[in-house]
Amino acid sequence: MRCRQAKKAVPLLAGGDLSPRKAQKILAHIEGCRACRLDLEGYRSALGRVKAAAREEGLRDWSDPEWKGLLARIITEKSAERSPAPRLRPRWAMASGLAAVVLLAVLTLVFRNSIFRPEGTAPAAGPEVVSVTMVSQETGLQVVWFLNKYFEWKGDNK
């Protein structure tokens, strides 16, 4: 073995990261080579110094409330992901739905008094005029329609 080959392997040898066979080969060379021996000692000393500094560094830990709080947060966040809040439908969809229901109710009232009344029978006692109010949820604008019992438009905002 030559010094060039040994020097390549010395950093790994210093940390005990060579296979026993390869380590044996390098050590055999190092025994007879002062330069390589010093090289190995330099690596071992430097590594030892850094490892000792790392041990003395005084690593911190979480405080108990910090740790408990962290875990609680993690579990809560994940649970929230599992059961997402129900999605709200858009406002315009709700407004249109409401308007459709109101319109249907009005039309039912109107037609019950006109079309479905048998011929020659007296009109049932009921309101002569029906009003329909539509309110925009976004702008607050109100539109009022007045209709007679034959579903004829009589004007608005009166």
């Binding site: 950093p11 330099g42 071992r44 000393s45």
Partner: peptide, 26 residues
């Protein structure tokens, strides 16, 4: 890992020996 470890240890040794030259002789 071995390649990076080798070069890391080489650099670490250089830094340490520059600061503590007496360590070079073990």
């Amino acid at each position: 890992v071995r390649v990076n470890l080798s070069s890391a240890r080489r650099k670490v040794r250089d830094v340490i020996l520059a600061k503590y030259p007496h360590l070079e002789e073990g």
